[in-house]
Structure formats: structure tokens, C-alpha cells
Nucleic acid binder design. Structure first.
Lengths: 211, 211
DNA sequence: GTCTATACCCGGATAGAC
DNA sequence: GTCTATCCGGGTATAGAC
């Protein structure tokens, strides 16, 4: 933890290699899921041998966890300019619909990691905790502004949003014809305003950013 | 398809063995997911050798598909006496909360099967098609009775219900503290009646069958 | 730092004895 | 019908040369 000014030559090259491997691993895991991926293929993609990769990461498991952390960092970037929780989720859905590999990785891995023995279990448990809490906060504030109905508990709505997002990803993988973000927008409609405000024909809410 | 009166001795024993293996496989797949399960373990559990199991099923894949069909049949039984789609889903959630292994199998396998090359892909594609359609029908009828709000498309609501169910199962696997059916009941509340009918404080809907 | 070679393990499937 | 033995493929990890 001494924040070195500038790593010397050989050391720096090592770091670059690590990054390179990380990116390749992200790709490979994205395409085949965790269990379907091998060090060999990652190695091939970065142009070295399987043993070479293990020089940088020691074990496959270590690499997997590094990949997850990396993916999470990218995620945070992408959702930096969010507005309301519901919109954020819809936006992310639209974005994901262009990244089938990543969706697959996430769905597969989060399912596999539900086993407490899985190396990524702690990662996902924490992830959902954090996401739920953050969405819940956003919803609570919206309720105070009367932007969101107040007769449903915000923690329930938060879990619904996350579940909706995950579940739709699965449905979309099985049938790419379905429109994830359109469905989420419909849900957002159901979350609207104070109960009395809406009458039978509610027009489209503004912000319909494509899909 | 000639409905034989009564299979002779050796033949009958074979069928029993098959069933026995099927049950064991259901257990094992439930506990470890598809990729985590081996013929060896299934064989051990039923007290024979791996080769013995293959005498009845020829390949691992064949066994897997048989297990899925079996599970589906059990599912149909359990949801025979349904009332409204939303209630049915909530009920199933409550039931699932006592069968962690099965939930895990389902979540894991449906994710893995989203790959078009996966042996169970067709099974799951069809399954979701059928489920969506059936729920959609139920909702449409409820809308005609004004039991369900009419400003949301029934196909969207149907997909939401399924997604909600799947997504909550994942969240529950990661954190068994959350209450799946309570959350689904909250969603059902959001689907209620013609828009004007509800005022700010809606009391609990009846049918709160534990959880 | 990177490779080749190899040890080791585990899974599925097949052959052949009983 | 069931087992043992075996083959074969694939994976991770390690040893040791360069």
C-alpha cells in the first residue's frame, strides 16, 4: 500500500499482461459461461500457453474472481448517469440486449454461485445486497416526491425490479424476440404516482429511449 | 402404443429400475446442478455401477431429458387446483421455498440451457412459451372481469410474473431470508382492479396462505 | 517470463466376462 | 442385467528447460 511512483520496466510489463489476460478471460467466460471455459482457450486468445496464464494468476479460481470484479467495475461506469431506479434498470436492459455473452455469463454464473461453496458466492451475495439497498433508497425518495405509488413497500419493489431484470434476461436468452426494456417500462408504469392520479388510459411516459 | 395387459417378469423389473434411477437422478441433479452431477454419483445412490445406469439410459443426456420431463410432470400435479395466475405463481413460490435442491436445478439448468446447443434448450424454450401463453390467457380473462388492471398488456404482465418468479428464486438462493411469495403478493396487488377502484390504503388481499 | 512436457484426476462411453 | 476393466477426452496444476 505504498503507492509506488512508477513501476520499473519488467514489473510494468507484468501488469499489462495481467490486464490483457483479464480482458481475454472476460470474453471467454462471456461466451461459454464459467464451467464451459478453460484456461487453454483464454491462453490461446491472448497468445500464450495455459501454463503462461497460470504464471499470472496461480489458479483458475483466482482468475474467475478477478474477472467478476472487473465486470462489476465496467457496470458501475455504464450506470453512472442514472435518473430513477426503474429507468436505470430499463436502460441497462436495453444495453444488455446487445451483449448476449455477458448476459449469459451473468445468468449462468449467478445461478451457479448460489451454491454457498462456489468461489463466487460471496461476490454475488454482496452484489445483490448492495443493489437492493441502492434501488430501495431511490424508490423511497421517489415515494416522498409522490412519483411512485406509496402503497407498496420500497424493499419489495426493489427486489421486484431486480428479479424482473434477471428473469427477463433468462427469457430473452431463450427467446431473443422478447423486448426486455419494453416490459420493464410497463412495470415502471405500474409503479407510478399516487394511487388516484392515474385514470384508465395512461399515455406513454416520456423517456422512451428506443429499447 | 398397444397398452400391453401386463409386462412379463423381467420386463417389469426393468421399468422399476428405470424409475428408481430417475428418482435418484432427480435428487442428484437437484443437489449439484447439471454440470456438477455425474453418472457415478447417481449410480452410487441407486446402488449400482456407472455402466449399469447406462444400460438403462444409453447416455447421460438421455437421462437428463428424462429427468426434466419427470420434474415437469410433478409440477403439473402441484398446480392443478389453481385460481388466478398471480395466485398460482405465489403459491408455487411458497412451495418451492421448501425444495432448495429443485430450485437450484431449475435456475442453473435453465440458465445453461439458454445456449441453443444445450440438450435441454428445446425443452425450456417450449416450456416458457407454454407458460407465458397460459398465464396470459388467465390474465386476459381477469381483465374482462375487471379483476386486473387493463392499462397493461397481458403478455407483458405474464412475462413479468414469470420473470419475477425466476428472479426471486435466484435472490432467494443467494439469501434465503427473503420471502418470495410475499413479494409476489405485493406484485399481485399492483395488478389489481380497474385503475380507479383502489384508494391509498388497500388492505391485505384475502388468500394469504402463509408463505 | 514463457514454453513444453507431464502428472494427475475425473467424466463418459464401450467391450467383454459372469 | 450387471459388473470390471479399459479407452479416451478434457481439465488443472506442476516441473523443468530455455
Amino acid at each position: 500500500m505504498t503507492t509506488p511512483r512508477k513501476p520499473r520496466g519488467p514489473y510494468r510489463k507484468g501488469l499489462e499482461r495481467r490486464q490483457q489476460i483479464l480482458r481475454a478471460a472476460l470474453e471467454v467466460f462471456s461466451e461459454h459461461g464459467e464451467r464451459g471455459s478453460s484456461l487453454k482457450e483464454i491462453a490461446d486468445r491472448v497468445g500464450m500457453s495455459q501454463a503462461g496464464v497460470l504464471h499470472y494468476f496461480d489458479s483458475r479460481e483466482e482468475l474467475l474472481l478477478a474477472v467478476l470484479a472487473e465486470r462489476d467495475a465496467l457496470d458501475v461506469e455504464a450506470t453512472a448517469d442514472v435518473t430513477s431506479p426503474g429507468e436505470a434498470v430499463a436502460r441497462t436492459a436495453a444495453h444488455n440486449a446487445r451483449q448476449r455473452g455477458l448476459v449469459d455469463l451473468f445468468v449462468t454464473l449467478s445461478a451457479a454461485a448460489s451454491d454457498p461453496e462456489h468461489p463466487a458466492n460471496a461476490f454475488f451475495v454482496r452484489r445483490y445486497e448492495a443493489l437492493t439497498e441502492s434501488i430501495e433508497d431511490g424508490l423511497r425518495k421517489a415515494q416522498e416526491r409522490d412519483t411512485v405509488r406509496t402503497d407498496i413497500r420500497p424493499d419489495h419493489m426493489a427486489r421486484m425490479l431486480l428479479a424482473l431484470s434477471d428473469g427477463l434476461q433468462l427469457q430473452w436468452l431463450l427467446n431473443p424476440g422478447i423486448d426486455m426494456s419494453e416490459t420493464i417500462q410497463a412495470f415502471n408504469l405500474m409503479c407510478l404516482g399516487p394511487s388516484g392520479e392515474r385514470d384508465d388510459a395512461t399515455p406513454e411516459t416520456g423517456s422512451g429511449d428506443g429499447a
